[in-house]
C-alpha cells in the first residue's frame, strides 16, 4: 500500500445540496474518497447518481446555487475548504486538471489549438512563449496527433471529436499536474476511439506518476483501467475497494445487480435473459433515512430502514449494507 505521502486527494463526508422547487436536493450525501499518486480511481454509477456534482465539488467548480460541505477536503495536504478562490484558480490547471465529456467545455471555438494550449502554461508562469510552444507540440505528439506543429494554427471545429478530446487531454497535461479528474471523457466517442483515449490516459498516468480519477457509467472501462473503484448510488458511495475485490466479490447488492445487467460476449449465452434491477432511484429531495437502494433490493429487510454503518473488509474494501458478507458470494 502506498503511504500517506502519496495521498493527493483526501475527501471525508462530502455533501452537495441544491435548492429545487420541492425543497433541497441532497445530490451528494456524505462521500469519502482518496486518490493516490500513481493510482487510478474510478467513480462509477448510473446517470443522476451524483458523479458529476462530486467531480465539480472536488475541483471547486460547482454551480453557484449548489452548497458544498465536507468534514475534510484536502489536496496534497492543503485544505481546499478554506482556500481562497485565487488559490484554487492557481491549483486548477496547474497541479490538478479536469477533462469533461464534451471537449468543447474546455475549448474556446474562436481560439486556435495552439493559443489554448500555451495559455494555461503561460498563465501559470511555467515558462516563456517558446517553451510553451515546444511543450504543446511535444504533448500533441504524445497524445497521438500527427503533424502536431501544423495543428497549432487550427481551430477546434477543424478536428474530429476524438482528436478534440486528445487536445483537451494535452491541455490538461501542459503544466504537469499531479491529479487529473476526467468526467466521462470517452462517453460520446466510438468504442475504437474510446479505447485509444483510455490507453492514452492509462499510459500517461503511469509515465507521469499522476493520480487519475476517472468518472464513468461503464463498468467495462472500470474493470480494465481502475486500481480502485467507488460505486455510487443515489448520492452515496455504496461500495469501495480494489477493482479486483469489488468486481470479483461484490458486497453491495447494487454492485452485484449492475454486473448482472451487462451482456458479456463469451459469457452471456445468446438469447438468455439478463439480470435486471426493478424499480427506480428514489427522489433525493428531502430527508432520506436508511439504505436508499432498499426499495429495489431483493435482499431488503427491516434493518435496511435504519441508518447503515460502513463496513470494512481487507484491503480497504468497504460497503454500506447490512447483509452478511457471504450473502452475495454466489457464482458470478
Amino acid at each position: 500500500m502506498s503511504g500517506t505521502a502519496d495521498l493527493l486527494l483526501d475527501v471525508r463526508g462530502l455533501e452537495v445540496d441544491i435548492p429545487v422547487a420541492g425543497g433541497t436536493l441532497h445530490a451528494v450525501r456524505g462521500i469519502s474518497l482518496a486518490a493516490r499518486r500513481g493510482e487510478t480511481l474510478c467513480i462509477v454509477g448510473e446517470s443522476g447518481c451524483g458523479k458529476s456534482l462530486t467531480s465539480l465539488a472536488l475541483m471547486g467548480l460547482l454551480p453557484p446555487s449548489a452548497k458544498r460541505r465536507a468534514e475534510r477536503l484536502s489536496f496534497a495536504g492543503e485544505d481546499l475548504l478554506s482556500a481562497s478562490p485565487r488559490r484554487l484558480r492557481a491549483l486548477r490547471g496547474d497541479r490538478m486538471a479536469m477533462v469533461f465529456q464534451d471537449p468543447m467545455t474546455c475549448l474556446n471555438p474562436s481560439l486556435t489549438i495552439g493559443d489554448q494550449l500555451t495559455e494555461t502554461f503561460l498563465r501559470h508562469g511555467k515558462g516563456n512563449t517558446r517553451a510553451a510552444r515546444d511543450r504543446a507540440v511535444t504533448l500533441l505528439e504524445r497524445v497521438g496527433i500527427a503533424a502536431a506543429a501544423n495543428r497549432l494554427g487550427q481551430y477546434p471545429h477543424q478536428l474530429s471529436g476524438g482528436l478534440r478530446q486528445r487536445v483537451v487531454i494535452a491541455m490538461a497535461l501542459m503544466c504537469g499536474p499531479d491529479l487529473v479528474l476526467a468526467d466521462e471523457p470517452t462517453t460520446a466517442l466510438d468504442a475504437t476511439i474510446q479505447l485509444g483515449i483510455l490507453q492514452l490516459l492509462a499510459e500517461l498516468q503511469r509515465e507521469m506518476h499522476m493520480a487519475l480519477v476517472l468518472v464513468t457509467h461503464d463498468l467495462g472501462i472500470v474493470a480494465r483501467i481502475a486500481d480502485r473503484v467507488a460505486v455510487m448510488y443515489a448520492g452515496q458511495v455504496v461500495e469501495e475497494g480494489t477493482v479486483g475485490d469489488v468486481f470479483g466479490a461484490p458486497r453491495h447488492p447494487y454492485t452485484r445487480g449492475l454486473m448482472d445487467c451487462i451482456p458479456q460476449p463469451g459469457r452471456t449465452v445468446p438469447g438468455t435473459r439478463l439480470g435486471t434491477i426493478p424499480g427506480m432511484v428514489p427522489s433525493l429531495v428531502g430527508e432520506l433515512r436508511g439504505c436508499s437502494f432498499r426499495g429495489r433490493c431483493p435482499y431488503a429487510m427491516p434493518a435496511c430502514a435504519e441508518p447503515i454503518a460502513l463496513r470494512e473488509g481487507p484491503d480497504g474494501h468497504s460497503w454500506r449494507c447490512v447483509l452478511p458478507a457471504e450473502a452475495l458470494a454466489r457464482a458470478a
Partner: peptide
C-alpha cells in the same frame, strides 16, 4: 477488441 467486458483480470486491449 474494443468491447470492454467488466473483467478486472484483463487490462485494456
Amino acid at each position: 477488441a474494443s468491447v470492454l467486458t467488466p473483467d478486472p483480470s484483463l487490462g485494456l486491449p
